[in-house]
């Protein structure tokens, strides 16, 4: 019995390869044809803005703490009105492994992934992106979230005026 199987196993592959030869190859010829990427593909990182057009990043360092290859670095600073921001913000894409852990760590949805994977270049230093390279003019994948409106501490808006908040109790008043 296993002689028959052996003979079949010897000649079947020839039929398979012959048949494959007349099929269309599955190759996607990259520079001319491009692959249809999944919606949530993880490639180049961006810093998004909130719906009001201000930077979302509050320079909390959580992304750089979450980064397994330590490719994110920043310097925190505080503006006159109390908003925190990054004085400088730098992502070294020669080290980035595009794991997306930074986007999961980000409390303000500032750092997000895009599907732009064509980062290759000849000079490694050109792959070190500064804040102005990273910052974009849109909200990324969330058009409504504004950190300072949800849980700010009276920085962007006076206390108690954010949606879902009640005004703080007047401690000098006895009325309930």
């Amino acid at each position: 019995m296993h002689v028959i199987r052996g003979i079949r196993g010897t000649f079947q592959p020839f039929w398979v390869t012959l048949r494959n030869m007349f099929r269309k190859p599955v190759t996607i010829q990259y520079p001319e044809e491009k692959q249809q990427l999944p919606e949530r593909y993880r490639a180049r990182l961006i810093l998004t803005r909130d719906p009001d057009g201000a930077e979302r990043c509050v320079a909390c360092h959580l992304c750089s703490a979450a980064c397994p290859v330590d490719c994110i670095s920043m310097q925190a600073a505080e503006a006159e009105d109390g908003r925190r921001y990054g004085a400088w913000f730098r992502i070294n894409f020669t080290r980035c492994i595009f794991c997306g852990l930074c986007t999961e760590a980000c409390p303000t949805l500032a750092i997000q992934v895009t599907a732009d994977f064509e980062l290759a270049g000849r000079d490694p230093l050109k792959l070190v992106y500064e804040k102005e390279d990273l910052l974009v003019d849109h909200c990324g994948n969330n058009n409504s979230y504004n950190f300072y409106r949800q849980s700010g501490i009276g920085v962007a808006a006076p206390r108690g005026t954010n949606p879902g908040e009640t005004p703080p109790a007047d401690v000098k008043d006895l009325m309930p």
Binding site: T17, L18, N20, M21, R23, P25, V26, T27, Q29
Partner: peptide, 10 residues
């Protein structure tokens, strides 16, 4: 080329 075509490559 032939090997490629037989393996569904170009």
């Amino acid at each position: 080329k032939i090997l490629g075509r037989m393996q569904l490559r170009y």
